[in-house]
Amino acid sequence: MRIVNETTNARIRKIVVYAVYIILLTSLQVSFPDTFSLFGQTADITFVFVVLSGYFNGFWDGAIVGFVCGMIRDVFSPPAVLGLDGEVRVTAFIGVFTLFAAGILGASFFTKRMHRNIPFSIVAVIFATFCYKVAGYLVIFGWSSMAGTTSTIYEPFTALVYSFLPQLLLNTLAAIPLIFFLRFLGPVSFRGRSKKDEIIEKQGEGTWLGI
């Protein structure tokens, strides 16, 4: 009976805490982007949150949080892309795709080997940001070539200095408070437990399957 109550409480806590964080972070991201900006880049707090959710709380947490955050991003600020007919169009589901993949990437980045330790979560954020940037530029370049338009993306060196480095720095800085929130005020309680992957099995990944 006690075990049942514990699991139910864990589920409720998880849903409520995630809902609050998701609404708050996605709204802050698009309402006050200048607050998180440097050198023309904006700290992607939603992206960092998704990667860290996957890293600390497991595969399904990363995937589901990424999916939900991605849908909200597609509603709030979807990318506009030059279509094959030459018209610029607002897209849908690119945000979901990006953040869903980011959540999975965060959850699989040496999480078991590194025992989901806090310092290594920064490395996970840096790696995921780097992958996001590289993939973004490759997709833009590929799409521009396919659409037959002149691509206006950065030269590799300019991209490194003015896009990659500021974004990596900003996302790393954004990760510090988010790590604190996820570990100590997060959806999964780690208090008084030692084997983190067991906690994730009980309160993390397994919980979603029961919802």
Binding site: P33, Q41, R73, A80
Partner: peptide, 10 residues
């Protein structure tokens, strides 16, 4: 809402 990053920019 404003642009959220370099690419999500409507």
């Amino acid at each position: 809402s404003r642009e959220s990053d370099e690419w999500f920019s409507t």
